[in-house]
Amino acid sequence: MTATDEASPADDLADFERLFEAHAGDLHRYLGRLVGAMADDLVGDTFVAALKGRGGFDPARASARAWLFGIATNLARNHLRRRKREDAATARLRDAALTESHENRVVDQMDAQLRARQLAVAIAELNAADRDVLLLTSWAGLDANEIAEALGIPAGTVRSRLHRVRKHLRVAAPQIDLGSADVDR
């Protein structure tokens, strides 16, 4: 793409429409898991913000995909922060998982749903920086270099952070008592 200040508006739009076709679906899937229906707005916001900030995009340093996911992550983080994010995200994920658990009677499926609910609470308790690395990996499918480009941090930091947060979740999530977690609200 030619995301430079010198490009004409028509050129910019054609470039960004190509980016939209290539990445909007993936961005929506990623954002949808984070913010639910708000993803509809945030996908548009991501491309509008990218268009407005295209002068700061350096294709030599980052892929357009990583750049867009970085913007989307930033927008989602701000959105979640304003809706007192942990509370709302926990409730949404927990409630959804709970609904599904009533529909599944097979024991192993119940175990899987229990783990999913425990993990939802554990993820909600992570700070934004750790959560971004985890979910950009697991839900957006970005590799460490892409996440480094997206978040503007060293790839080594991404790897160490991911290793640490996964270890933390493997230990902490099974210890979460969903009964007491619910009572707090």
Partner: peptide, 21 residues
């Protein structure tokens, strides 16, 4: 403590968002 596989499965089992209509 969960295994890596259990963690990956729990991540995959998180509810998906709405479809991109």
């Amino acid at each position: 403590m969960w295994t890596d596989e259990e963690l990956d499965q729990a991540l995959a089992d998180q509810p998906v968002g709405p479809a991109f209509s």
